[in-house]
Amino acid sequence: MIVRIMGEGQVKLADSHFAELNKLDDELLQELESGDGAGFRRTFGALLGAVRELGEPLPADSLEPSELILPSPDASLEEVREMLGDSGLIPEL
C-alpha cells in the first residue's frame, strides 16, 4: 500500500505491517476521545515513526496514487480528529 504523510512524501508499506500500526491507531483513538493531548502527541509520533521505519520511501519525483493519507507530524489533535474514518487513521486489512 502507498502511504503519504502530508508534507513529507510517500512510502510503500507491506500489508503485513498493518496489524502493528492498527494497535497504535487504536491507542490514538482512545487518546483523541479522552482529549489526552500529551498521549495523543506521543502516540501520533510513534505511529508516523513506525510508518517511516517500516515503509520503503518512494523517490521524491514519484507520483504514485496514495491509498492512505496521514496528517503531517505537526497536525493538532483537532486536525487529526477531522481526518479520522470509522476505524481511525489506519484501515483494517
Rank of each mutant, 00 (worst) to 15 (best):
M1W: 00
M1D: 08
M1G: 08
V3W: 01
V3Q: 04
R4Y: 05
R4L: 06
R4Q: 14
R4D: 05
R4S: 09
I5D: 02
M6A: 15
M6D: 15
G7D: 02
E8D: 12
E8T: 07
E8Y: 09
G9M: 06
G9D: 10
G9E: 08
G9K: 01
G9T: 12
Q10P: 07
Q10G: 05
V11H: 10
L13D: 08
A14V: 02
A14H: 12
D15G: 08
S16N: 13
H17I: 00
A19E: 15
A19Y: 03
E20Y: 05
E20C: 08
L21Q: 02
K23C: 08
L24F: 00
D25R: 05
D26A: 04
D26I: 01
L28M: 11
L28S: 04
L28I: 02
L29G: 04
L29S: 04
L29H: 04
Q30N: 14
Q30V: 11
Q30F: 11
Q30W: 12
L32R: 00
L32M: 12
E33W: 12
E33L: 12
E33A: 14
E33N: 14
S34I: 03
S34Y: 12
S34D: 14
G35I: 04
D36K: 10
D36N: 15
G39Q: 09
F40R: 00
F40P: 07
R41Y: 05
R41N: 14
T43S: 10
F44I: 02
F44D: 00
F44C: 00
G45S: 15
G45C: 10
G45A: 15
L47F: 02
L47C: 06
L47H: 04
L48D: 07
L48Q: 09
L48Y: 07
L48W: 08
L48M: 09
A50C: 12
A50N: 12
V51C: 03
E53V: 06
L54G: 07
L54Y: 13
G55M: 00
E56H: 10
P57C: 05
L58H: 01
A60Y: 05
A60E: 15
A60D: 15
D61I: 11
D61C: 11
S62P: 11
S62I: 01
S62H: 14
L63F: 14
E64Q: 11
P65F: 05
S66N: 08
E67R: 07
L68T: 03
L68P: 00
I69P: 12
I69R: 14
L70Y: 01
L70M: 06
L70I: 00
L70W: 02
L70Q: 00
L70G: 00
P71Y: 01
S72M: 13
S72D: 15
P73L: 04
P73T: 03
D74H: 14
D74F: 10
D74C: 05
S76N: 10
S76C: 09
L77I: 15
L77A: 13
E78D: 15
E78N: 13
E79P: 05
V80F: 06
V80W: 02
V80I: 03
E82A: 15
M83C: 10
L84S: 03
L84N: 05
L84Y: 04
G85I: 01
G85F: 02
G85Q: 08
D86I: 03
D86V: 04
S87L: 05
S87I: 03
S87A: 13
G88Y: 03
G88H: 06
G88L: 02
L89R: 01
I90R: 01
P91M: 04
P91F: 07
E92G: 00
E92K: 04
E92Q: 10
